[in-house]
């Protein structure tokens, strides 16, 4: 590209987030790019992946000839169970989410505000066809919430904003955002840039962001 940088693709964003997840954490991965984070956690790093439909210890997708139709993840894709994993019913699965038993939840989003508000379930406040799923429970319960999303919309509008324009999923919940351009922490002082892709300047990143940015 003209600016001399290449934005991360979906795998790149997922891999970047996976890099920061330490052994031993219990982690819920939302649908979309967050689910792909699991593909980039090395097999020898024991991270326990929770899926909202009652899986503790979700493993990678099976080979096509080993699909078990009874074993799916939150996106109803076939998965495997890691040795040591277990199953719970839905009320217990959301007790895990809501009750603070997750070290980390990773979700996709439309927008995140500088105070950590999350908007990821609707584009209009009173949209009749609502797709909430488990997002609101997952967003409020984890010890930390990370978001993975493109830095801007397809039209170039910033998704990191002073205040969200879309209806909220939860207020003040997001702690970190992984975009295709940068990694940013949400702090009491707003967004702090922790990492930026090669070839992109801080000023160029700021120009693609609605909220002010601080250097780490």
């Amino acid at each position: 590209m003209a600016d001399g940088f290449t934005p991360l693709d979906r795998d790149g964003m997922a891999a970047r987030a996976a890099h920061d997840i330490p052994e031993g954490w219990v982690v819920n991965l939302g649908i979309g790019i967050p689910t792909e984070v699991g593909n980039f956690i090395p097999a020898d790093r024991e991270v326990i992946i929770h899926s909202e439909n009652g899986v503790i210890g979700a493993g990678p997708a099976p080979a096509p000839d080993r699909i078990n139709p009874f074993l799916v993840n939150a996106g109803t894709q076939p998965i495997t169970l890691r040795t040591g994993g277990s199953y719970v019913h839905h009320a217990d699965s959301f007790a895990i989410a809501r009750g603070g038993h997750l070290d980390l939840t990773v979700l996709g989003a439309f927008e995140v505000s500088e105070n950590g508000d999350l908007a990821n379930w609707a584009r209009a406040a009173h949209e009749p066809v609502k797709q909430i799923g488990g997002a609101m429970d997952l967003a409020i319960g984890a010890k930390r919430l990370w978001v993975i999303m493109e830095h801007t919309t397809k039209e170039g509008a910033p998704r990191l904003r002073r205040t969200c324009t879309y209806p909220l999923t939860a207020k003040g919940a997001v702690k970190r955002v992984y975009t295709n351009l940068a990694v940013l922490d949400v702090t009491p002082q707003g967004f702090v840039v922790r990492d930026i892709i090669p070839g992109l300047s801080f000023e160029s990143l700021a120009a693609r962001t609605d909220a002010p940015l601080a250097r780490a």
């Binding site: 909202e52 019913h89 839905h90 009320a91 699965s93 959301f94 989410a97 809501r98 009749p128 066809v129 609502k130 909430i132 799923g133 488990g134 997002a135 609101m136 429970d137 997952l138």
Partner: peptide
């Protein structure tokens, strides 16, 4: 729903279970 032929109450999934 959009045709007004079905009433829908959307509840967060964990709240629905609880």
């Amino acid at each position: 729903l959009l045709a007004g032929r079905l009433e829908v109450e959307v509840v967060p999934q964990g709240t629905l279970a609880e």
